[in-house]
Amino acid sequence: MITIRHLRKEFPGVTPLKDVNAHIEKGEVISIIGPSGTGKSTLLRCLNRLETPTSGEILVDGENIMQPGIDLSRVRRKMGMVFQSFNLFSHKMVIENVMMAPMDLLGLPARQAYDEGMRLLELVGLAEKALRYPDELSGGQKQRVAIARTLAMKPEIVLFDEPTSALDPTMVGEVLAVIRNLAREGLTMMIVTHEMQFARDVSTRVFYMDGGEIYEDGPPEQIFDAPGRERTRVFVKRLKVFEREITSRQFDFIEINNAIEEFGRRQMLAPRDVQSIQMVFEELCVQTLLKVMGEPVALTFSAAASALDGRCEIIVTYGGASFDPFETNAQDLPVKLLSRRVLAHSHCYAESQNRLVLQLS
C-alpha cells in the first residue's frame, strides 16, 4: 500500500528524518516506537503531506505523492489522521463533528452522513453522546469521537499520532480498546505510541526509530523479546547502562569499583545486585580475562539494570581467540565464585571478538 524510499526531512538546525525506508502492506498494523525527538510524528506528518519532505519518495498504491501538482486533498482522503489533541469543533455537537467532512468533501446527503455517523459513534461506544458538545465529554471520549470522525471519511489507512498522550491515565484504556477493535477488523494503521504493551498486543509489525531512521523493523515478538540491535534492546527493556572500556592492564580498578557502586545507588539497585556486578567485574574481567588476553588489551564491560523488572544483565566483549571461561576454566576459583551469582550465560565468537552475556540471579 505504501512504499517509503530514502525519506528525509530537514528543519532549520535539526534533521528529524535522515533516511527512512519502509514498505507497508494492506491490513498491517504498525506501531512506531522510540525515544522522543527521533522523527516518529514527523514521519506520519510527511506521509499525509502535512509536512513537505526535503527529499525521497512516498508511493501510495504506486503513485508518488511527492510529485509536483499532486492533488493533496485526494491523497489525504486515503490517509486519515488522529492527532494528540482532538481538534473537535467545540460549537458543534458530536454528531455534527462526525458528519461535516463526509458532507463537505465527499458530498454525502445529510441523512446518509447522519446514519453513517451514528454507526461510527456506536462503533466507538458513544452513540448516546451524539447530541452532546465536546466540552461535555471526557478526554477519552473526545479522542474516540476524533477516531469516529476520521473513519467517516472511509480512509484506506489511519495514522495515529500518540493518540493517548494527552489523556489522563484512567482514560487511556478506552481509546486503546477502540484501536484494538479496528485492528481486528483489518484496518491498515500506523500508530506512534509510548504504550509498549499495547504495541506488543495489537501490532503486526513494529518500527523502532532512532537517529532519524527506522533502526529496527520486525514483528512484536522480535522487537520486544529478542531485539537484534543494541539500541532497540536498551529502549524496550528500559535499561540503565553502566559501561567501561579497558585498554590497559594498569587501569584504575578502584575508580571503576566505586563507579559501579554509584551506578547502583542512582538506579536504586539492591545491595546484593551491586555486589554481584562488582564481583563479575573483578573475578571475570580482572582475575580471568585480563590474565589470558594478549596485547593490545581490548575489553568492554557493560552492566544494565532494567527499569521494568529490576533484572541485571552484564555484557563483556573482548578480543583474542575464542574463549568462554565458563567452559574452559569452569574449575577455577574465580569462575566457581561467579557461578553462585550468575543465573545464565551465553557466549558467542565472531570476527575475532568474544561476547559474553550474563544474567544475574
Rank of each mutant, 00 (worst) to 15 (best):
I2K: 13
T3M: 02
H6L: 02
R8H: 11
F11S: 05
T15A: 09
K18P: 06
D19I: 01
N21D: 10
A22E: 04
A22S: 08
G27W: 05
S31K: 02
G37A: 14
K40D: 07
S41Y: 08
C46A: 09
N48T: 11
N48G: 11
L50G: 06
G56S: 05
V60M: 09
D61F: 08
I70L: 02
D71E: 05
S73E: 04
R77W: 04
F83A: 06
L88W: 07
S90L: 12
H91G: 09
M93I: 00
V94Q: 00
E96R: 10
N97Y: 06
V98T: 01
P102H: 00
M103F: 07
D104L: 12
L106K: 12
G107K: 02
L108V: 00
R111I: 04
R111G: 12
Y114T: 03
M118N: 01
L120K: 03
V124I: 13
L126F: 05
P134T: 10
D135L: 14
D135V: 12
D135C: 02
S138F: 07
G139P: 04
K142C: 11
A146C: 07
A152D: 13
M153R: 12
I157N: 06
I157D: 05
V158Y: 05
L159W: 11
S165L: 00
A166P: 05
A177N: 14
R184N: 12
E185D: 12
M189I: 00
M190V: 06
V192A: 01
T193S: 03
T193I: 03
H194W: 08
H194A: 07
Q197A: 14
F198C: 10
T204Q: 01
V206C: 03
F207R: 02
G211Q: 09
I214Q: 02
E216I: 03
Q222M: 15
A226V: 04
F235T: 01
V236H: 02
R238G: 13
L239Y: 13
K240V: 01
V241P: 02
I246D: 05
T247C: 10
T247S: 15
S248T: 15
F253I: 14
I254T: 13
A259N: 15
R265N: 14
Q267G: 01
Q267F: 00
M268H: 15
P271Q: 15
Q275V: 05
Q275P: 00
I277K: 08
V280H: 01
F281V: 04
L284Q: 08
L284K: 07
C285R: 00
Q287N: 15
K291G: 15
V292K: 15
M293Q: 15
P296D: 07
F301N: 01
S302T: 15
A304Q: 13
S306I: 12
A307Y: 03
L308T: 13
L308N: 14
C312Y: 03
I315Q: 09
A321D: 15
A321L: 09
F326K: 04
T328M: 11
N329M: 11
A330G: 00
L333F: 14
S339D: 10
Y349E: 05
V357T: 15
S361Q: 13
